Amino acid sequence: MGAIEKLTSSALSAVAHGFLGRSGGVSAGIYAGLNVGLGSADNRAAIDENRVRAANAVLSGAALNTVHQIHSNKVITVDRPFGDDRPEADAMVTATPGILLGILTADCVPILFADEQARVIGAAHSGWKGSITGIMDETVKAMVKLGASRENIACAIGPCIAQKSYEVDEGFFERFIEADPANDHFFIGGKAGHYQFDIEGYVAARLAAAGIRKIECMGEDTYSQPDRFFSYRRTCHKAESDYGRQISLIGLTQQ
C-alpha cells in the first residue's frame, strides 16, 4: 500500500514522533497495510514486520514498547524494553533514550506528550472510558514525577473518530453530563435519542484543564478515511470480522 504515511505535529517538532496510518505495511485483506495490532487475528509474521517498519519510520534502532490497552486510566513508567511481555495499561511515560512508546488505535484518541527541556515523554490511548476517567491527567502526573513541568509539556492529539462520525446514545450523553454539566459543549444533536460526540475536543479541553498550554489537534477522522486509517466503528458498520490498528509513536534520541 505504498510508503508509510507519517503525520507529525509542530508542537512536538523537537522530538522523534509520528502518527502512522495504514499505508506502507505488508498485511492483506481486511488488515491491508500497516496493521500493528497484536490483538487482531492477522498473520503474526505480517504484524511483526509492520511493527518493525513502523518503529524504523520514527526512530530507527529504538526498542518499541506497546501495552495491553484496557480502556483504563492506568499509566506505567518505562525504563527498559519489555517486548512482548506487555503490561496492562493505557499510557506510558519515560525519560530513557532509545525507548519508543507506541499507542495503538482504531478510532480512539492517541495522545503524544513531550517536555523537551526535561527530556520526558509520554503516550496515551484515550477512548471514551479512559477520557472520562482522566488518562490524560494521569499521564501528565506521571511525567511530572519524572521531572517534567506542566508549563513545558506539549501535546499532540492524533487521528481519531470525528464528531460527525461518532454517534452516541442518550445514556452515553448522560454519563458525561453527570460527570460535568459543562460537557454538553462537546455534543450536538443527532437522530432521535442520539448525539454526535466530539471526543477530540473533549480530550483537548481536559489537557488544557490539566495545565497543558501547547496542544495541537491533527483533525483527522479515522472513520471516514478507509484508505488511510483503520476504524473499529467502520468495521462494525460493514459487518467485517475484525479490524486493524494503527500506531502513534514517540521516542527520545540518545544525547
Rank of each mutant, 00 (worst) to 15 (best):
M92W: 07
A45S: 13
C108F: 07
N50S: 11
A45P: 00
R86H: 04
L64Y: 03
G61K: 11
L101I: 03
S60K: 13
V58F: 09
Q69V: 06
P87F: 08
V67C: 14
A89S: 07
G102H: 03
T77D: 00
L104T: 06
L104P: 00
A54V: 03
V67M: 14
A91K: 02
R80Y: 10
M92F: 05
R51E: 13
V52H: 12
N50P: 08
T105E: 06
P87Q: 04
N50I: 08
N56R: 14
I47A: 05
E88P: 10
R86Y: 04
G98S: 12
A95K: 15
L64I: 09
C108E: 15
A95L: 08
P97I: 12
V67G: 04
D85E: 14
R86S: 07
D84C: 06
I76R: 05
M92S: 06
V78C: 01
T94N: 00
C108T: 15
V75C: 03
A62V: 04
A57M: 05
R53A: 11
V78R: 03
S72C: 10
D85L: 11
L59N: 05
R53G: 03
V78S: 00
L101Y: 08
A91L: 02
A46G: 07
V58L: 09
D107L: 05
T66G: 06
L100E: 00
V109W: 06
T94M: 00
R51S: 08
E49A: 15
R86D: 04
R80E: 15
H68N: 15
G83R: 11
A62P: 06
V67R: 07
V93G: 00
H71D: 01
V75P: 07
P87W: 09
R51I: 13
R51A: 10
T96E: 14
T96K: 14
H68V: 04
H71K: 14
A62T: 05
G61N: 12
V67H: 08
V78P: 00
P87K: 02
L59V: 02
I99R: 08
H68L: 15
A91P: 11
A95M: 07
R80I: 04
N50D: 14
F82A: 09
I76D: 04
V109Y: 09
H71L: 12
